[in-house]
Simulated assay, not measured.
Amino acid sequence: MNRRLSLLPSLPIYLLFHLLRKIPTLHQSGIFTSPAPRLPSTLEKTTFLESKKPDVYQTNFEPTSYLEYFKLDQDPMAKEVLHFLLKHYNATFKPGGLKGKLLIDIGSGPTIYQLLSACETFEEIVASDYTDKNRQELEKWLKKELGAFDWSPVVKYVCELEGHRDRWAEKEERLRKAVRQVLKCDILKERPLEPAVLPPADCLISSLCLEAACPTLGACRDALHHIKTLLRPRGHLVLSGTFGSSFYMVGDKWFPTLPLEEKFLLEALQEIGFTIEKLEKAPRAAETLLDNRSDYTGMFFLVARRGD
Score class of each variant (00 low, 15 high):
L98I: 07
L85F: 14
Y89A: 04
I112W: 07
E62H: 10
G96T: 02
E80Y: 12
K94W: 03
Y113L: 03
E62Y: 11
I112Y: 13
S108F: 01
L82E: 11
L98M: 06
L67T: 09
V81S: 13
K99G: 11
L86Q: 14
V81A: 14
L82C: 10
D73Y: 09
H83M: 00
L85H: 15
P110V: 06
Q74H: 14
E62F: 04
Y89R: 00
L85T: 12
I104R: 10
T92K: 06
D105Q: 07
F93D: 00
Y113K: 05
L67G: 13
K94Y: 04
L86E: 13
E68F: 05
V81M: 09
N90A: 12
G100M: 05
L103Q: 09
G100A: 01
F93A: 03
L67M: 12
G96P: 07
G100S: 07
N90F: 11
P76T: 07
P110C: 02
F61A: 02
V81G: 03
F70V: 01
P110I: 06
P76W: 04
G96R: 10
M77Y: 10
Y113A: 14
K87H: 00
S65A: 14
F70W: 12
M77Q: 11
D105I: 07
P110R: 05
H88E: 14
P95V: 00
Y69A: 02
E68T: 15
E80R: 09
T92H: 11
F70K: 01
G107A: 05
V81K: 13
V81R: 11
K87I: 00
L72W: 11
D73E: 15
K94A: 13
T111A: 15
Y89D: 03
K71I: 01
G100D: 00
E80K: 06
S108V: 01
Q74F: 02
A78F: 06
K99Y: 08
D73H: 12
F93R: 04
G97A: 04
I106S: 05
F70A: 02
P95A: 04
I104D: 05
L85A: 12
G107N: 08
T64V: 09
K79Y: 12
H83V: 04
G109C: 11
T111V: 04
D75V: 03
T111W: 05
G96L: 01
D75W: 15
P95K: 12
Q74A: 14
